[in-house]
Amino acid sequence: MNAQSRLAIHKGLRKHSLALATGLSIAFGASMAQAATWDVTVTNLTHGNHFTPLLLTAHDSSTHLFQVGMPAPLPIEHMAECGHLDPLLATAEVGAADADTIADPAGGVLAPGASTSAMLTTSATHLSVVAMVLPTNDGFLGLEAQEIPTTAGTYTYYINAYDAGTEANDEVLMTSGACSYTDSGMMPGAPGGDAGSNGTGVSSADTNTNIHVHRGVLGDQDPTGGNSDLDSTIHRWQNPVAKITVTVTP
């Protein structure tokens, strides 16, 4: 990494904090750009949570897959509650997987501490990355319309977990059937195989129904009962939950 990319690490952090504080993304004027390649690596920084298949997409400054502080669009609800990417890939903003939209680079879930990489070829200016955090009801990690520099270098961004605000955080695991965004409550899976059962439900409603900073999960120490099917020693996290590095080759 060069000096410039190191600076970008701190810039990225500050920018992210600002976006959090204002609930708005920072949009910059789009400039004419030639096609560049972005080598993007996503690292799961959690100790006990998996990420569902990631979606990485390059776009212009006016596109927003979601906006923190605003209600989750339906395709984001599908992603955040069930990990489903098809609704996002069917939107005009994202479109089908192609040179600058990569779906599921890890070939499945991304385990705690694991990384996956994808190469995007794009003339666009901004990058968005989303995936659901498992096991949660509607928690997701999101890089929202981050402007990517055009100068060669490696740029690092740290990503927080958001609550889509679309489903009560009951922390109850689905035991049968396919996940649907219309379910009320219920987490679709715990890939670590470390969740419990028979939880009676932690929360019955979201107070904040817009996308907000996830308050984390509660869990308990009763694998066959209690309020939660989550384990308080395994499934909690603190931000940031993901690191994204983008190596730009103009």
Partner: peptide, 9 residues
């Protein structure tokens, strides 16, 4: 886990 991660508290 034998990997450095963000501590969950």
């Amino acid at each position: 886990l034998d990997k450095v991660t963000i501590h969950r508290g």
